[in-house]
Amino acid sequence: MQIHNNTLIAECSSYDFKEMLERNKVKSWLKSVSAFANTDGGSLFYGVNDDGVIVGWDNPQADADFISEMIKARLDPVPEVQLIPIEHEGLNLLEVRVKAGTLTPYYYYQ
């Protein structure tokens, strides 16, 4: 992943940019986590808008805890993920790195 002028280069099939965490719409981002686990893996970057511009994130620790809890509670089997805080020029980001799964298929359930 490269950063140029506060812009991540570039969104593709193994990256997904999220400006903020949608706590009321967990299905939207958990489907991305399960899709990454069911294929070759990938990362969700929180604090980055759809154009790849780094906008930062206010409360990465609390949101990281929520992400971890939702992955464990709503995906079966639970994929292997890493939550990686990133600081770039005073802005906080969070990378949710999802490894390619060995127990496919991974499902979202409520």
Rank of each mutant, 00 (worst) to 15 (best):
L44W: 02
D63H: 03
P79I: 00
R74C: 09
L91V: 07
G47M: 01
G47I: 01
L83N: 11
Q61R: 10
L83C: 07
P77Y: 01
I3L: 10
P77W: 06
I3S: 01
R74M: 13
L75W: 00
D40F: 14
P105N: 14
Y109R: 05
I86F: 06
V78A: 02
D58N: 12
E22K: 06
D63K: 02
E22C: 09
K72V: 07
K72P: 00
Q82E: 11
G56R: 03
L44V: 06
L8K: 00
G56M: 05
N92Y: 10
V98H: 00
N59K: 01
D63G: 02
R97Q: 09
R97H: 14
M20F: 09
G52D: 02
Y106M: 04
V53H: 13
I71H: 03
T104L: 05
I86R: 02
P77N: 04
P105Q: 13
M1N: 11
D40Q: 15
A100H: 10
G90A: 07
G41F: 01
K72A: 12
P77K: 02
E89I: 06
E69L: 03
S34Q: 12
G52S: 02
L83D: 11
S28W: 02
D51H: 03
K31H: 14
P85V: 10
Q82D: 11
L83W: 07
V33T: 02
R74A: 06
V96I: 12
D40K: 15
V53D: 15
E87L: 15
L83Q: 07
K18M: 03
I86H: 03
D58S: 09
D65Q: 14
G47P: 06
N6G: 03
F45A: 08
F45C: 12
I84G: 06
E89C: 10
T7E: 08
P77Q: 08
V53K: 12
I54D: 00
E95P: 02
L91P: 01
G47D: 09
D40M: 14
Y108L: 12
N5V: 00
E19N: 09
L30N: 10
Q61A: 11
P79L: 01
Q82M: 10
H4W: 12
S14F: 09
L83M: 13
N6L: 10
E11R: 00
K27C: 06
G42I: 03
V48N: 00
K27D: 11
N49P: 09
F17E: 01
K31G: 07
L44E: 05
W57A: 05
E19S: 07
S68G: 09
A35H: 11
V26M: 09
S34R: 08
D51R: 06
L21H: 01
V26H: 08
A35K: 06
V53G: 08
L30P: 14
V78Y: 00
D50I: 05
L21W: 03
Y46A: 02
E69A: 14
D65I: 10
S34N: 04
E87K: 10
I71V: 11
G41Q: 09
P79F: 02
W29Y: 05
K72Y: 06
A100S: 15
S13V: 11
I3Q: 04
V98A: 04
K25G: 12
F66C: 08
D50N: 11
Y46L: 13
L30M: 13
E11S: 09
K31A: 13
F17T: 08
V78I: 15
I86K: 03
E95L: 11
N5Y: 05
E89F: 07
P105H: 15
K18C: 04
